[in-house]
């Protein structure tokens, strides 16, 4: 059966990823995805779908096909080397108790 017979739009509205800042000062966080014909509509749809319960003060959208993701098969070489660099974390350093506010 062709798409047309099934009464699909020949071109489905593209998929977008939605990122929402939940309140001023915080990062945008992935909220979910949705379909929209263009970027402007994607932002409005995101407002209507993902901020109905006051979940956001700012919205980013990006068409899903533009997201580049790391390969989970390379997770070992990508992320494990960071695990022995504990000196990057402040708790690695012992300071005398008298030192305050550091």
């Amino acid at each position: 059966m062709t798409n047309d017979k099934l009464n699909n739009s020949k071109n489905e509205w593209p998929l977008w990823e939605v990122f929402i800042r939940s309140k001023a000062g915080l990062d945008h966080k992935h909220a979910g995805s949705l379909h929209a014909a263009d970027a402007q509509m994607a932002i409005e749809n995101a407002r209507d779908v993902y901020t109905r319960r006051m979940e956001g003060v700012s919205i980013w959208v990006v068409e899903s096909k533009h997201i580049q993701a790391s390969d989970p098969g390379e997770a070992d070489s990508m992320y494990d080397p960071a695990s022995d660099k504990i000196y990057r974390h402040p708790t690695f350093y012992n300071l005398p108790d008298e030192v305050k506010y550091m």
């Binding site: 009464n7 699909n8 739009s9 020949k10 509205w13 014909a37 263009d38 509509m41």
Partner: peptide, 20 residues
């Protein structure tokens, strides 16, 4: 709902393409 919405969805895509 889906069948009657087809022309609406198509119109939005056509318009987006024209704008682009």
């Amino acid at each position: 709902a889906w069948d009657e919405g087809k022309w609406v969805r198509d119109a939005a895509m056509a318009h987006a393409a024209k704008r682009k």
